[in-house]
Amino acid sequence: MMIIDLPLTRKWLREPPEEDDEILNLIIGAAEAYLKNATGRVFDSTNNQARLFCLVLVTDWYENRELIGIKPSDKVRFSIQSMLLQLQNLPDEGEVTSV
């Protein structure tokens, strides 16, 4: 199950050209794989933090295609690291935590 889809991503990016759809689908898949590999967890579209993480990462990779590598750019690194930390430490589904 996908965390984000192409229509949502296109809205988030303020409607990029349709000829970029193939690139966007590739980047969406890579962002979702990055999240899974970084957290060891599988998320779906019901987790808004995971959705936002993927949208931020897709935006960074899309807007900085010439610099794309295996990690986020410096300008979003802090946000990405902070979101990853929170997503890594979410309780398992059904687990109850006290505040």
Rank of each mutant, 00 (worst) to 15 (best):
D21L: 04
I80Y: 05
N48W: 13
L35Q: 05
Y34G: 03
D21A: 08
G29N: 13
M2R: 13
Y62N: 05
A31K: 00
L52F: 14
R51S: 07
T46H: 13
D20E: 11
D44E: 13
Q86G: 10
S79H: 01
G40C: 01
R65Y: 09
R10M: 12
D60G: 02
R14I: 10
C54P: 03
T97N: 06
N47H: 04
V99M: 08
N25A: 13
I28A: 06
D44W: 03
D92Y: 15
I68L: 11
W61V: 04
R51Q: 14
N37W: 00
P17S: 10
L67F: 07
P16M: 06
R51L: 05
K71T: 15
R41W: 05
I80P: 02
K71C: 12
Y34E: 06
F43C: 07
T39D: 00
A31W: 01
S82N: 11
L26F: 12
V42H: 07
D60Y: 02
P16E: 03
L35T: 06
I4Q: 03
L8S: 10
T46C: 08
A33N: 08
T97S: 12
R77V: 03
W12F: 15
E93F: 15
Q49C: 04
E19F: 15
E66K: 13
D5M: 09
P16F: 08
Q86S: 14
V42E: 12
S82Q: 08
N47G: 04
V99L: 13
T59L: 14
N37E: 12
S79G: 05
Q81P: 00
A31M: 04
L85R: 11
F43M: 01
S82C: 10
L52G: 04
I27K: 11
I68V: 12
M83P: 01
Q88W: 11
G40I: 02
W12Y: 15
W12R: 07
K36M: 15
P91V: 02
E18L: 08
F53R: 06
P16C: 02
M83L: 15
E63Q: 14
E32D: 04
G94L: 00
L13K: 11
L13Y: 07
P72K: 01
R51P: 02
Q81W: 14
L26I: 10
A50W: 01
I70G: 11
L24N: 11
F43G: 00
L24R: 08
